[in-house]
Design a protein around this nucleic acid. Structure first.
Length: 473
RNA sequence: GGUCCCAUCGUCUAGUGGCCCAGGACGCCGGCCUCUCACGCCGGAAACACGGGUUCGAGUCCCGUUGGGACCA
């Protein structure tokens, strides 16, 4: 069985790059009916916070990335690491070293000065020291030969062991170091497929050596290229809102973000739009790309619009509720599902949709200044009155009947639909842009429509009077 | 500086030696539709980093150069 994992450090929010790594591992586990493990790498106690842990879990949940095991916390696994350090010491794959920092610093400087690569010289390799407060544990890296990484996305990469040195796996205070901890975790958790950012490539030979020293089978490694910002540098806060939760709050659908992230560095022919279910079906390691990709917010936005179009109004209505609530809008009167349906083609985010829905639920429409100036003027008052009168007589407020009513007015007045619809639109919505006029009419219903028309006429009269005043003075 | 990785339209990418004077998507431009705004539809500009090989034939294989990135220092 395939076992994958996602091991975030709880030192901040889950950002897009991390989310994509999690996604690839999760997709692969789900695709193969394997297991996906969540592991919190909180050994850096100074920078790790509980708030970050919660933010990460919340982000994953929102995205719909669920885990079968965990979350494990590295901070609670110290005894396991120590046990494995013992093993390496006993088997002669590691040794104790008490070289003081001063000496280490000196070799480093000398190496640099003579143009060599700075590395530990192996002085304590065979000294057989006893453990003390002064000793660290070093891994006994082979002096010659090479270590081969058979990477599923990058291909085979060969590292000369002579490039590596006897790196520390446990510090003086007995705490294990990163490369060691990761390997022990992955071995003990049964992880056999590791998909991660290619910033880890250089760690991999060390880790492979540890696997071998521990006598464990190597997992499949796949190093995916990182996500870059528009300036082609590694994605960071500088490039705007990077946290997954920020996208949730900006009104993105989780399936849109997943779709975007999956397609950034992975492809399936010409297909651009995927449901999460489809991604699980179609995901494959072979189609992972090996060149870094630039994050493109516009494409994400258009994908979000696409997913909005593909989501049933009923479900969108549910998801829109929190956004409406945040605006203090009581969802009463107009049928939210119908409102949502009318806004689907013109909303790229749920935020836009919520904004577009506002006028349906406010009794006192606020007129945009330029809209009022252009359409709520005296010459349009008769039109509004005529529309009112005609609609008053309408038994049912349904699109077809409404359209007939407007046609009647057109015939009577000789006006084009636009001349009538625009003032009505401003009267009903306060804006010059909105869903179709008949659609709005039907959703609003007779009572509220007539009320809004009446208020618009009132507004025109008041302003006409006002401008007369201004003229006379 | 050392080691490693990468290289097709502005961006994400298809392309695994002939199907490619390079396809799709986002964005951009033009048009159509139209009660506004959108949606939708039609069309357009836009790329194989460069130089050498290999081959009858290279975006596709090899080498080098250049550029970008990662890690370590």
């Amino acid at each position: 069985m395939i076992v994958t994992r996602f091991p975030p450090s709880p030192t901040g929010h889950l950002h897009l790059g991390g989310a994509r790594t999690a996604l690839f591992n999760w997709l692969y586990a789900r695709h193969t009916k394997g297991k996906f493990i969540l592991r919190i790498e909180d050994t850096d106690t100074a920078r790790s916070t509980q708030a970050s842990v919660e933010a990460i879990l919340e982000s994953l949940k929102w995205l719909g990335i669920d885990w079968d095991e965990g979350p494990y916390f590295q901070s609670k696994r110290l005894p396991i690491y120590q046990e494995h350090i013992r093993k390496l010491l006993d088997s002669g794959h590691a040794y104790l070293c008490d070289c003081p920092p001063k000496r280490l610093e000196r070799i480093r400087r000398e190496a640099l000065a003579s143009g060599r690569k700075p590395k530990y010289d192996g002085k304590c390799r065979d000294r057989g020291l006893n453990p003390s407060d002064e000793t660290v544990v070093r891994f006994k890296t082979p002096l010659a030969g090479s270590t081969v990484l058979a990477d599923v996305v990058k291909g085979t990469i060969v590292f000369e062991n002579s490039e590596l040195d006897d790196f520390i796996i446990a510090r003086q205070d007995d705490t294990p170091t990163y490369n060691f901890v990761v390997v022990v975790d992955d071995i003990t958790m049964g992880v056999n497929v590791i998909l991660r950012g290619d910033d880890h490539v250089m760690n991999t030979p060390k880790q492979i050596l540890i696997y071998k020293a521990l006598g464990a089978d190597l997992p499949v490694f796949g190093h995916v290229p990182m996500v870059l910002g528009s300036d082609r540098s590694r994605l960071s806060k500088r490039h705007g809102a990077m946290s997954v939760l920020a996208y949730r709050d900006k009104g993105y659908l989780p399936e849109a973000l997943i779709n975007y992230l999956a397609r950034l560095g992975w492809s399936y022919g010409d297909q651009e739009v995927f449901t999460t279910k489809e991604l699980i079906e179609k995901f494959s390691l072979e189609k992972l790309g090996k060149s870094p990709g630039v994050f493109n917010p516009e494409k994400l936005l258009s994908l979000n619009a696409e997913h909005i179009k593909r989501t049933p109004p009923k479900i969108l209505a549910q998801r829109l509720l929190p956004f409406l609530a945040r605006r203090g809008v009581p969802v009463e009167g107009a049928d939210l599902e119908a409102v949502v349906a009318s806004l689907i083609p013109r909303s790229k985010t749920l935020v836009e949709m919520a904004d577009g829905a506002l006028f349906f639920y406010t009794d006192k429409v606020v007129y945009e200044e330029s809209a009022a100036r252009k359409f709520l003027k005296p010459e349009n008052a008769p039109i509004l009155k005529q529309v009112s009168a005609r609609l008053e007589r309408l038994p049912a407020f349904e699109e077809e009947a409404l359209e007939d009513a407007f046609k009647g007015i057109m015939a009577q007045t000789g006006l084009k639909l636009g001349k009538i619809a625009q003032p009505v639109r401003v009267a009903l919505t306060g804006k010059t842009a909105s869903p179709g006029i008949f659609e709005i009419l039907e959703i609003l219903g007779k009572a509220r429509t007539l009320e809004r028309l009446r208020r618009a006429v009132e507004y025109i009269d008041a302003h006409a009077a006002q401008s007369v005043d201004e003229n006379s003075t």
